[in-house]
């Protein structure tokens, strides 16, 4: 897998560029401890399979016959303007919205019919950080680990130290960036098979954004894990995504491996491709 890391120092980039990325390669985050990865899926099965998904909110069609298949081990970038349907698509993947038309399968399961089977294998972080404000960071870790049998205490503690989170601090007293880091900690500490990031970097400083990118890389560093990453910051998507899907008015206008997209657009950046596609 080729991962681009424009944000890192030159020597670091040189070390890790064009090779399978390890978590130590970025941002001085702790080394991931390899764990046994037990997946019920076959290597060839898609982690997410969406077929003809349609969703309306009143008169507005948020998603119009969207079909996507995301293979295991890929970093999938989801881009599009505000209101394009990115969050609606992700909510269907999480089972928070019920498909009005078409079908959604995650790990081969229906996320609405089997929320426990799906949610216990997904790590999720969104821009709207809705962690309970009354909890301390320690409470959050204690509470979250009860839900995930594969929770790794050592890894969680390493992340907490790397993110400089005070375990006694209340979530409501944390800054926006610290809240994002706390959310990231509980999304990563059980080494989810699928990491879903819904506009995680919006409004955050470059240091926290770097941590989030680091999380993406750490996740795929473990064999066979998958990332679904929606973002407005196209340079970030460009740095880590293998495959990009572009949504416009609830319809997929572009979906292909990033390398193919760039080849087809004669070396334009994703920003430029996005603008030209949006104007088309």
């Amino acid at each position: 897998m080729v991962v681009r890391l424009r944000g890192c120092a030159a020597d670091e980039r040189a070390r890790i560029s064009d090779q399978r990325v390890s978590a130590t390669s970025i941002c001085a985050l702790p080394t991931p401890i390899p764990v046994e990865f037990a997946s019920s899926l076959q290597q060839s099965d898609p982690v997410i399979h969406i077929a003809n998904l349609t969703r309306r909110f009143g008169a507005k069609t948020a998603l119009n016959s969207v079909s996507v298949s995301m293979p295991r081990g890929a970093v999938y970038g989801l881009v599009g303007a505000n209101g394009a349907g990115k969050t609606t698509l992700i909510k269907h993947v999480m089972g928070l919205l019920k498909a009005e038309g078409g079908s959604v399968r995650v790990f081969g399961l229906d996320p609405v019919a089997d929320p426990v089977g799906v949610l216990s294998r997904i790590g999720y972080l969104s821009e709207e950080n809705d962690l309970p404000g009354w909890m301390t960071v320690n409470d959050l870790i204690r509470y979250s680990r009860a839900f995930y049998p594969r929770w790794d205490d050592t890894y969680a503690e390493e992340l907490r130290n790397a993110f400089a989170l005070d375990s006694a601090a209340k979530i409501k007293n944390l800054s926006k960036g610290q809240k994002a880091r706390a959310g990231l900690l509980v999304a990563l500490a059980y080494r989810p098979e699928l990491l879903v990031l819904d506009e995680p970097s919006s409004g955050l400083d470059p240091i926290v954004r770097r941590d989030i990118l680091g999380a993406v890389i750490r996740t795929i560093a473990d064999e066979g894990r998958t990332v679904l990453f929606s973002s407005h910051l196209l340079d970030e998507v460009e740095e880590v995504a293998d495959h990009v899907t572009m949504l416009r008015h609830g319809t997929i206008v572009l979906s292909a491996p990033l390398a193919d997209i760039k080849a087809a657009h004669s070396g334009l950046s994703l920003d430029e491709i996005f603008i030209s596609t949006a104007r088309a």
Partner: peptide, 23 residues
Amino acid sequence: RSADVSRTFTSAFQAQCWFEWQS
């Protein structure tokens, strides 16, 4: 703090009961 180190929930349901009580 000293109690927190050793206190873990034995199940997700127990953790959820704690969450509900605290909330």
